[in-house]
Design a protein around this nucleic acid. Sequence first.
DNA 1: CATCCACGGGAATCAGCGGTAG
DNA 2: CTACCGCTGATTCCCGTGGATG
Length: 333
Amino acid sequence: MIRDARVLHAQFVPDELEHRNAEINTLSNTLKPIMDGHSGNPSLLLGPSGAGKTCIARFTVERLRENVLDINTQYINCWQDYARFQVLYRLLETIGTTVDIHRRSTPTDELLDRLRQYDGPPFVVILDEVDQLEDNGVLYDLYQLPQITMILITNRERDLFTQLDDRLTSRLHPSVRISFEKYHLDELVSILAARARWGLVDDVIESAEFELIADAAAGDARIAIGILRHAARLAEQTDTQRITTDVVQQAIPEGRQDVRQKTIEQLTTHQRVLYDIVHEHGELDPSTLYAAYRDRVDEPKTNRTVRNYLAKMEHYRLIHAEGDNRARTYRPR
DNA sequence: CATCCACGGGAATCAGCGGTAG
DNA sequence: CTACCGCTGATTCCCGTGGATG
């Protein structure tokens, strides 16, 4: 059934893209100065999730790399690498100067110094989910490095700009903005058809099923591809020769929940207990939460550790924290 | 104003892992 | 092969900060 599983993951970047030509062109144009050895302006890709921002960014940069003899590129997902140190570290990794850097002993400023000394080819940096950065200062750091061209991706522009301080806002405001809309139904169908063509055995799914998936995905290509992947797996497991409407129906909930499900699975037992408590209570204050947690586990972690867990879970958007200091409450997402 | 409660940064400590000297 | 060393990530301890409360 499945011929090439890589293709069935949303982060796979195809060799050719059927839609989003306008967006690709705009992005290419802002990157053009690089071809003449200048650094490009930062660009800002905006739009709902699953609208193709990440895919287009990677695609365009890859194509640029084919056209320019020598550039460095790095993709960073700020959801995973949200600290200033982590971002700088990744960049140094690409240019290969991390050898003697030890996470413990090397101060962040030294990483920045090393980046300043960088005098290699143009360096294009994709920062995905920028609004997740805990310290926006790193944007300022990068902005000041002449060889670096930034592509910023976010689905919530407002969140991003309220976090920025003035010097950054004024720097980034003139940057090129490219807005993405949700995919139309027929666009999703053709995206799915392409993935099926590359990733699945021939003739196992028909257009009615594509449309069903596209409809359930509501414009989000990531979800659509997730559903397709689950459906293919289900069909394989149950030894069905085709991806039928039935199979698709079963795959829809999992496909939708995919991202969240994966992060929940990554939680430790202690974190999972906290998650469950919050979701059972609906809304509660820190002390009741901690008390409930103590009751439920054998060897409870300290209050401080629990706070770390909660912070992390909020970061992954599994729970929602509201209010400062004593007004703090936690509730499910 | 003193006290309470929670937050989150930083230092100290612990436990697991891999490499290495003997 | 084993004992030891250094590194790392997780946890805990300690503490300053700040808004709420009485």
